[in-house]
Design a protein around this nucleic acid. Sequence first.
DNA 1: ACTTCGGTGAACGAAATTGATCGAACGGTT
DNA 2: AACCGTTCGATCAATTTCGTTCACCGAAGT
Lengths: 256, 256
Amino acid sequence: MFAAERRQAILELVRASGAVSLRELADALKTSDVTIRRDVRELQEQGLLDRRHGGVMRPGGLSREASYSQKARVAAGAKAAIGACAASMVREGEAILIGPGSTTQELARRLARLSDLTVVTNSILVAEALAHAPAEVLVAGGSLRGSTYALVGSSVEQALSGLRVRYAFISGNGLTPTRGLSTPNVQSAGVDRAMVAAAQSVIVLADHTKLGVDTMCQTVPVEQIAEVITDSAADPQVVADLRAQDVTVQLAPDVG
Amino acid sequence: MFAAERRQAILELVRASGAVSLRELADALKTSDVTIRRDVRELQEQGLLDRRHGGVMRPGGLSREASYSQKARVAAGAKAAIGACAASMVREGEAILIGPGSTTQELARRLARLSDLTVVTNSILVAEALAHAPAEVLVAGGSLRGSTYALVGSSVEQALSGLRVRYAFISGNGLTPTRGLSTPNVQSAGVDRAMVAAAQSVIVLADHTKLGVDTMCQTVPVEQIAEVITDSAADPQVVADLRAQDVTVQLAPDVG
DNA sequence: ACTTCGGTGAACGAAATTGATCGAACGGTT
DNA sequence: AACCGTTCGATCAATTTCGTTCACCGAAGT
């Protein structure tokens, strides 16, 4: 990765999450904080982002963004590792489904180099991450949910209903060995279920902060989860319980 | 592998991933860095790619942000003025359609304050701009066209076919008094036509660089254009010709 | 057989980028 | 107000990359 490429990645990250700390940028791009500082200063002089003490923000974005950026900030390194791990499962020529979420977005970024790939998504951030990739990107249209940049509603579910893909990569808000994957939003739950129905194998991307957490709507029972990819900080008890139910659990190596 | 063949391969790699380091190119093509450097210099002089220290990037969108910001800076007044002018036409409670394009994106930003508004779009950038607005945002799903961040294809047209909205704000690549609005892309043209069919009134947002320009696919004949919003640098002759055909032409006042 | 020519690879000095370190400034806390 | 940890900015050394020059190889022509 060279300088200009790294700066482009910085802009993508900032644009996606609204606000990113310098530490996270250095972490995600695997470079020193000094370099990030230099890049950020350069980009600021071009007016491409706004600088604050400790991090950077979108240029126009004064008031917007609290929810998504906060979520994206949690366990950024872990999410990168999980995304990389998931990306290594995907082969050229396949068709896959990617749900909304900061972890799945990380996955999407890693898929940008694969050609002859078909990606179906209901996340406009995933779509944006793949905009310049050689892959064919299909966006399931629907109503936009601002807090997660996901498209929801019956039209999304309908668009997914006719599909059959190799993998569905989804990332809810909570995952427990007994109740499976869950999300606090009813509409998102409906979309998640439609995604599961369209996939041969369901891969759940969940960093350690989501393990053992249960939220309102169950979207995928444990029996339908083929694999869980989490990070090395995952609760060993939850991992063991999941494995006891024939779920393959991968611990993504730390340096994603 | 001879020179021209290798250069073709370089271009493909660059277009595919957006940015490639010289080391990667030399590695992938099994040749020395010197040769790659020579090729890259040649290709840069032809404007086929953009060179940076350590690697090469896609030419137009060396970084989409940069080119976007450059465009925005060059025509800052014009785009802001056109967007503001168009935004002032929209009333709360209405349903409108916004097509892809940097000018329409500007419009979307200005609409973020209106509540009780329904916006239908096929542009993921417009959707993103309105993500945190109180408005209801509906995204017509389809295949993603990376260069414009627009969703195209029959599913988009189908999603639009059932709709009826007050205004369609679209912004093609060229607008002439005789041939109307046009775009160089066939798929985009299909979507534009579907948008026009769904709207009571078609509003064309076109800065002065697009006036008098004709491109391959005609999307909207002059008779179906209710109004054109352009900037004060517009060619007076083209404006007069448009007005002679009962098209309302607004010259957005220059703002800072 | 020899020469010329286009293309390629190697080597070297020049330039740019990068990372470590240190003092200063900033933010939050007591 | 003073403290402490973090972040910022600048300098310097080390690494990487750039551009030029030169030598080599194979093909085409004399």
